[in-house]
Computed example of a mutant assay.
Amino acid sequence: MVRVVLADDEAAVRAGVRVILSADPAIEVVAEAGDGHALIESVRAHRPDVALVDIRMPRLDGLTATAELRTVAPGTAVLIMTTFGSDAYISRALGDGAAGFLLKTGDPREFSLGVRAVAEGGAYLSPMVAARVIRTLSGDHLARTVAAGERVAVLTPRERDVLALVGLGLSNAEIARRLHLAEGSVKTYTSTILGRLGVSNRVQAAVIAHDAGLVPRE
């Protein structure tokens, strides 16, 4: 069962998202919060697998709360939700350690898909958000390829294998099956990879994997 804390300052929105998530028998909303401070306290109390967080909240906004949750509860994956899909929001959310980003105006099924993906150690970007990221990264491809190649050069062959599968968006469990490793070993590899690449989350690592040409074609 994937345990979720849901944070949005609008009670009607929380009720709607709860209904959507409740339709998935593998997901349980264990607490709700109406602002960033309440979110952090709820995460401390419940230690959920996923925090589903709105960007615009009173007292403490969702992006600032996301950055704080990296210290308070590093085992809780943060999935950002918003009606605003600006590049600045997306960039900051991922930079602050969010594992995914979805739009409230998108397909309702994305809530369950996103929660499941980040709970399993993967990353999730709403298709509309992914399109923005791709457009942002489309410029100066050669320079990015060279820079990414230099960054992955510090990794061991096994770490590069793991990074390549992170680039495919696979969860830790899926990577473990592919590489015949224990899931705990994959978690350790992933943590080491993030540190050596100097990035804070799997989405950023996946971008480097693609730029470096490590991602196999499926």
Results as ranks from 00 to 15, higher is better:
P74A: 12
P74C: 12
P74H: 11
P74D: 13
G75F: 09
G75A: 13
G75E: 14
T76A: 13
T76P: 14
T76V: 14
A77Q: 10
A77D: 08
V78M: 09
L79P: 14
M81I: 09
M81V: 15
T82M: 13
T83I: 15
T83W: 13
T83V: 15
T83E: 11
T83G: 15
F84Y: 15
G85Y: 09
G85L: 07
G85D: 15
S86F: 08
S86I: 08
D87F: 08
D87Y: 08
D87V: 12
D87A: 07
A88L: 09
A88W: 02
Y89K: 10
Y89I: 09
Y89A: 14
I90H: 08
I90E: 07
I90T: 11
S91V: 11
R92E: 15
R92Y: 05
R92A: 13
A93C: 03
A93Q: 03
L94E: 02
L94C: 10
L94P: 02
L94Y: 00
D96W: 01
D96V: 04
D96E: 15
G97W: 03
G97R: 07
G97Q: 06
G97D: 01
G97F: 06
A98I: 05
A98C: 04
A98T: 06
A98K: 05
A99H: 12
A99M: 11
A99C: 01
G100I: 11
G100T: 07
F101A: 00
L102G: 08
L102Q: 07
L102I: 15
L103Y: 06
L103M: 13
L103R: 11
L103I: 13
K104A: 09
K104N: 07
K104H: 10
T105D: 13
T105E: 14
T105W: 02
T105I: 08
G106K: 12
D107M: 00
D107C: 10
D107H: 11
R109G: 15
R109I: 09
R109N: 10
R109T: 15
R109W: 02
E110S: 13
E110F: 09
E110V: 10
E110N: 06
E110K: 11
S112K: 04
S112N: 03
S112I: 06
L113W: 02
L113R: 11
G114W: 07
G114F: 04
V115G: 01
V115Q: 01
V115C: 00
R116G: 00
R116A: 08
R116K: 14
A117K: 12
V118P: 02
A119E: 03
E120N: 06
E120R: 14
E120V: 00
E120Q: 13
G121V: 00
G121P: 01
G121C: 03
G121F: 08
G121S: 02
G121T: 01
G122V: 03
G122A: 12
A123P: 00
A123M: 00
A123D: 04
Y124D: 00
Y124M: 05
Y124F: 15
L125A: 12
S126F: 04
P127I: 01
P127A: 05
M128I: 09
M128Y: 06
M128F: 03
V129Q: 01
V129D: 03
A130K: 07
A130C: 09
A131M: 07
A131N: 05
R132K: 14
R132T: 11
R132G: 08
V133D: 04
V133W: 04
I134K: 14
I134Q: 11
R135G: 03
R135E: 07
R135S: 05
T136I: 05
T136E: 09
T136H: 12
L137N: 08
